Amino acid sequence: MNIYSGNSLQETKAPVMTPSCFLDTVYAESVDVLLLAAGCGPGLLANAKMWVFEHSVYFGDSCQDILSMLGSPHNVFYKSKDKMNIHSPSLLKQVPSKCNDYILNDFTLRVDILFDSNTHKVKKFVLHTNYPGHYNFNIYHRCELKIPIAIKKENADGQTETCTTYSKWDNTQELLGHPVEKPVVLHRSSSPNNTNPFGSTFCFGLQLMVFEVMQNNHIAS
């Protein structure tokens, strides 16, 4: 005995699925592909248009503002502890936190955005240079960062230098000055029983910025 839909076994077709099969979510009944360029044949795609948008995000922006400008992130990470808290004043170290800060990870925009758990506003941006030999290599796209640095010299007009993705740590220290405190050593591993084959990185604090420096003198973030 055969169970089928249609007039005969040779002309069977799949029955129409009811909305309950999709758990009352949005679904596509069919998808039509339109080839807009003239002369396009089967298997040829029209030239895709690239739309360029420019948005500015700032410290203190709310989470809703960031999501409306940049869209949904690829991942949301909730911090368990702040390793850079050792550089905070002693009074801030003693204040317990009722909830954890969270980070929006965007791999194609090459940036992580840290939000305060109480105010839900931006308090840190992390820009990734995606250098080979780093633990997060090839996870993020390379961020082409540019940090203008104003340099004042005696008996001369001030000039502006730029710290970029390709600047090395030695050159950056000549522009910003040498850090006073020792760096925070950052270890990464995929599990407690594994070690990081790329080695540790060092986090230096300079002029309200933290530079993660690799052992080959390149800036990782």
Rank of each mutant, 00 (worst) to 15 (best):
K98T: 11
M1P: 11
P89K: 06
D65I: 02
H141T: 04
E174W: 07
S90E: 13
D82L: 14
T164V: 04
M17V: 04
A28I: 02
S167Q: 06
Y27N: 08
E54C: 07
V31G: 03
Q207F: 03
A46E: 12
N138K: 09
D82W: 06
M214G: 14
N7Y: 11
R142C: 05
S97V: 12
E29V: 08
N75E: 09
F53A: 15
C40L: 10
L34T: 12
I147E: 06
W169S: 13
A150F: 07
I86Q: 14
P89C: 06
H128R: 10
L145S: 05
F198C: 10
D82K: 14
F202I: 00
I139Y: 08
P96T: 05
S221G: 02
N100W: 08
Y78A: 06
N216D: 15
S20T: 14
P19I: 02
I149E: 13
N85D: 12
Y58C: 07
S56K: 15
N193S: 12
P89Y: 09
N171Y: 14
F77V: 08
I103Q: 06
M69S: 15
T119G: 01
D170P: 04
Y78P: 00
R142S: 15
F204T: 05
G60P: 06
N136D: 14
Q207A: 10
H187R: 12
Y135N: 03
H141N: 09
S5V: 12
S97L: 13
D170L: 05
I66M: 03
N7D: 14
T119Y: 04
N171I: 03
V185A: 04
T18V: 10
S80I: 06
Y4Q: 02
S30M: 13
A48N: 04
V180R: 09
P192H: 07
T172R: 12
N118E: 11
F137E: 04
V185Q: 11
P183D: 09
V184P: 01
N155K: 10
T165M: 07
N118P: 01
S56G: 03
Y131T: 01
N100K: 14
A28H: 09
R142H: 04
N100R: 14
G41R: 13
L23Y: 09
I86W: 15
L44T: 14
L91F: 13
P15V: 10
L92F: 12
Q159A: 00
V122S: 07
A150S: 11
G41T: 10
T129C: 11
L36K: 09
R188N: 13
N130G: 01
K83A: 07
P19A: 04
L208S: 15
V57E: 09
G6C: 10
E154Y: 02
E154I: 06
K152I: 04
Q159H: 12
S80Y: 10
N194D: 10
D24P: 07
Y166C: 00
S90Y: 05
N118R: 12
G41K: 13
V122G: 08
S200G: 00
T108P: 01
T165N: 14
